[in-house]
Computed example of a mutant assay.
Amino acid sequence: MTWSDRIRSLVSKWTVVVPLLALIALVLSWGRSLPGFAVALVGLCLAGAVLAAVHHAEVVAHRVGEPFGSLILAVAVTVIEVALIVTLMVGGGDKAATLARDTVFAAVMITCDGIVGLCLLVGALRSRVAVFNPEGTGAALATVATLATLTLVLPTFTTSKPAQQFSPAQLGFAAAASLILYGLFVTVQTVRHRDSFLPVTPEGEVREEEPHVPPPGHYAALLSPVLLVVSLVAVVGDAKAVSPTIESGVESAGLPQAVVGVVIALLVLLPETLAAVRAARRDRVQTSLNLALGSAMASIGLTIPAIALATVWLSGPLVLGLNSTHMVLLALTVVVGALTVAPGRATLLQGGVHLGIFAAFVFLAISP
């Protein structure tokens, strides 16, 4: 097969065409008020871009290996999530004061309870007991808990500024601490203790390669990183295009404004959710946990510093402190997560418990 034939074969695949269509939908809908049928079309493009993003993320992950593959997807999604939050905050004024907090906290609950619970459930259904490395997973959970406490819990108790806000100096410290902790974790995950984040066998032995899956071709490996970025941009951009409809629907239904942050986080985290579930179905639960906890960590460690920098030109208050209900849910998530991670093995029960906490979060977001 010639070089041009290979290119034509790749271009003819839906995983190439759909991201481009979703990007076109983003360009045509950007900054416009969309009628109902246009919202439906953009929604379809959004769903297709999510599926394409999962495919290309798996190609990249297989090419570079774990844990780099999980890290690439987590960082890519979070960087675009930050751009979406900042974009919505620019025109939101005081109404958007809690948007960053609501979205980041929703991302933590979705990843640490929703994705973790679903993947443990899928892994346990496949192999009766889901097996993972407690050393790497425990380190990731500890980092997530520390980041969440420093950035989302402490503002509720500080006294320099009222109403769950950091002072400029406190916000700068939280941003610097978040970046340092995230960078330290990435170094440990990818360099010094990489084996702690690789999938393991039921006997606890490290499993380096994906079993029975041929490596991606040269051209697919070159094209997939580009299409992954295109797909993620389209996911977030199309989500922003339909967000006015979501906001008006939330307002019409009389739901709290925090629901908007939950919906945004759900849309943005769809690629990682599907990728994590697929990994769990292949009995690679460690990869699923890398994706889930890595996404939670990146969501805090990258979003808070970016928002802190954006406050230089953003007007209006920035409310980061959680209320008492959310702090209880966060504490429960950390305690249950620690008990789940410690043995390095999980059954249907652990998956169900995490999903129960996630269900409580969604219900209380709708009915506080």
Rank of each mutant, 00 (worst) to 15 (best):
S127P: 00
L26M: 12
P19W: 10
V153G: 04
I357N: 02
I180A: 06
A279K: 12
M109A: 08
S29A: 15
E208C: 00
L28Y: 07
L322C: 01
T347S: 13
S33L: 09
L349W: 14
P305W: 08
A124R: 06
G93V: 06
A310T: 05
G321R: 10
V59T: 14
V79R: 04
A306R: 11
G138K: 11
V188M: 11
V131Q: 01
L332C: 09
Q165R: 15
V206R: 11
S127K: 07
T156H: 14
V200E: 07
V206A: 01
V319Y: 02
V268F: 10
A61E: 04
R284K: 03
G31I: 07
N290Q: 02
I80F: 14
V108F: 02
S324I: 12
L270D: 02
A25Y: 10
A22V: 13
T156W: 12
A140T: 06
L71P: 01
E272W: 00
R192M: 05
S315V: 13
L88T: 00
K95T: 08
N290Y: 01
P162A: 13
G65K: 09
A107R: 04
V341S: 03
S127L: 04
T103C: 03
A163E: 14
H326I: 00
V104L: 11
R194L: 03
I24D: 02
K240H: 10
L222W: 13
A239R: 06
E209R: 15
A47V: 15
V229S: 03
P211M: 04
A163V: 08
L181K: 07
A359N: 00
I264M: 15
G43L: 08
I24P: 01
R278T: 04
T2A: 06
V79P: 01
L88G: 02
P199R: 02
R281H: 06
T143I: 13
G117L: 11
D238P: 01
F363V: 15
R194Y: 03
L332E: 07
R63V: 05
T311Y: 05
V341P: 07
I300W: 08
T87R: 14
V191K: 13
L88R: 06
S33P: 02
T273P: 01
G204C: 09
S29V: 05
G351R: 12
S70Q: 06
V54W: 13
P244D: 01
A360M: 14
L314F: 05
T159E: 14
E272G: 01
M89Q: 08
A280W: 10
S70Y: 04
V122M: 08
R101L: 00
I110D: 02
A52C: 14
